[in-house]
């Protein structure tokens, strides 16, 4: 899932400065699962906003709605009927959701309430860690299901660097990804697979060339 976390409160307040009616939009997708932008978080944020603005002598009216997902146009279109008199939208989605709203409603201000962090997994309730670098050319088939692109600080493709000590990375107190890969491949009897030298990765599939796009003609609706 996309993991996100709330922006500093002062930044959110500043982005809604001078607005009298704000539509607070939660997202029922990834950010609801990582407890950053679902219905409950939207409610907390709206209530906090109303109270603070009241104390500042600049009361604000809020409306709340939580869409099934903010990254799909059919859900974002639901906002249309909520926008009357609204000065701005506070979106609790990831950066994708905020942009989809901005694209659909070009004449209304939309502010992000969250910082989008990474594509990650739940370690335990309340703790998430990055698991995918979205590189566009997956190498998990060569590395036993452990991603060296995102879990190795240097994104190395052919074994650990000299900074790997006792299975730990020198950059952060994380496990060395290549140590994890080595142990797993050993357990699976596939160490010989690691002797194959990985060639330079095709980073043209990565994120440095503008927005990437996937088009599936077989599922397009041409009506």
């Amino acid at each position: 899932m996309i993991v996100a976390a709330a922006k500093p409160w002062e930044e959110i307040m500043a982005s809604l400065h001078g607005m009298h009616k704000v539509l607070v939009v939660g997202c029922g997708g990834c950010v609801a699962v990582c407890l950053a932008g679902g219905e409950k978080e939207a409610g907390i944020m709206a209530s906090t906003l109303r109270m603070q603005r009241k104390l500042q002598g600049e009361p604000v009216e809020t409306e709340e709605i939580t869409l099934t997902r903010q990254c799909d146009p059919e859900y974002v279109r639901e906002l249309g009927k909520k926008l009357e008199g609204v000065d701005g939208i506070l979106s609790l989605a990831c950066g994708v959701g905020v942009q989809v709203i901005a694209e659909h409603y070009p004449n209304i201000w939309v502010a992000p309430a969250l910082n989008t962090k990474f594509a990650g997994a739940t370690l335990e309730h309340g703790s998430w860690e990055e698991r995918c670098g979205l590189c566009g050319d997956c190498v998990l088939g060569q590395t036993g299901g452990i991603c060296p692109i995102i879990r190795c600080a240097k994104s190395l493709l052919n074994g650990p660097c000299g900074g790997s000590q006792d299975g730990k990375c020198e950059v952060k107190p994380n496990e060395c990804a290549w140590n994890l890969i080595y142990e797993r491949m050993g357990r699976l009897g596939r160490l010989n697979q690691l002797l194959e030298v990985a060639e330079a990765k095709d980073w043209s599939q990565g994120r440095d060339g503008g927005p990437r796009r996937v088009v599936r003609e077989d599922v397009k609706l041409d009506d």
Binding site: K40, I44, S47, R50, M51
Partner: peptide, 11 residues
Amino acid sequence: IDIRLLLQAFE
């Protein structure tokens, strides 16, 4: 109890 409920009481 959730945070929303607590804030709602103050509001």
